[in-house]
Simulated scan of single mutants.
Amino acid sequence: MKNILFINEPDLYFDKDEFIACLPEIGGEDELLKELSAVLKFPGYFGHNWNAVYDCLCDFHWIEKKGVVLVHNVMPMLTEEKLKAYIEVLHDATKSWGIDEAHYFKVIFPVKSMPFLEYILMNLK
């Protein structure tokens, strides 16, 4: 879980050497897919589904900076099932990047979401 971080004020996170994508407050799955595409500048061929999100989070050839950071100021408002699917995609994507790769990917959440997300992460298949 080294690339999923919990900090007190995610909106203040900054590193000049990283591409930082901040998600706004999200009200559902469709909105989340649109916002991910927008803030991470997904290519036009993005398929607007979880498999396509995973594929894009494991590529980033369109982003020049080595570090790519997805910041959540608040948890997306999703059903428990959709939230689990989203967290699993994020978890798997952060793990997919090796040390010597062109990019690295990390995800930031507010500290207050830590207990719930750790529970989800511990119970992934």
Rank of each mutant, 00 (worst) to 15 (best):
K41S: 15
L121A: 08
D59F: 09
E29A: 10
L23C: 03
F116Y: 14
H103R: 09
Y119E: 08
V89P: 03
D17I: 07
L117I: 04
K16M: 07
M77E: 10
P76L: 06
K125W: 15
E88K: 14
G98P: 00
F109K: 02
H72E: 02
V107A: 06
D59V: 04
D59P: 03
K2I: 10
Y119S: 12
K82D: 14
L36V: 02
F42I: 04
C58D: 03
L40C: 05
F116R: 11
F42A: 01
F19L: 08
F109N: 03
V68R: 04
P76D: 04
M122H: 13
L5R: 15
G47E: 09
A38I: 10
S37K: 15
I26M: 05
F46N: 04
S113M: 12
I7P: 06
E9H: 10
V71Q: 04
Y54I: 00
K41R: 15
I63A: 07
M1S: 12
V107C: 09
M122F: 12
E35S: 06
K65T: 05
V107G: 02
P43D: 02
V68E: 01
G44K: 13
V111I: 11
D92Y: 12
I120D: 07
V69H: 00
K112C: 10
L70S: 09
F105G: 02
L36C: 01
S96K: 10
V111S: 14
A102E: 13
N123C: 06
M122E: 11
E35D: 05
V71Y: 00
D30Y: 15
P110E: 02
G27H: 15
E31C: 09
E80P: 10
P115Y: 09
P76S: 00
I26Y: 08
L57F: 04
P76G: 05
N73G: 15
E18H: 13
K112Y: 13
D15R: 13
A102G: 00
S37V: 08
P110H: 03
E88H: 09
A21W: 07
L57C: 08
M122R: 14
D92F: 12
E64L: 11
K106N: 04
P110N: 04
W62K: 06
K82H: 12
V71W: 01
I108Y: 03
V111M: 13
I4A: 01
L40F: 07
V107D: 01
A52K: 11
E35K: 06
E81K: 15
S113H: 11
V39L: 07
D59I: 08
P110I: 01
V68M: 08
L36G: 06
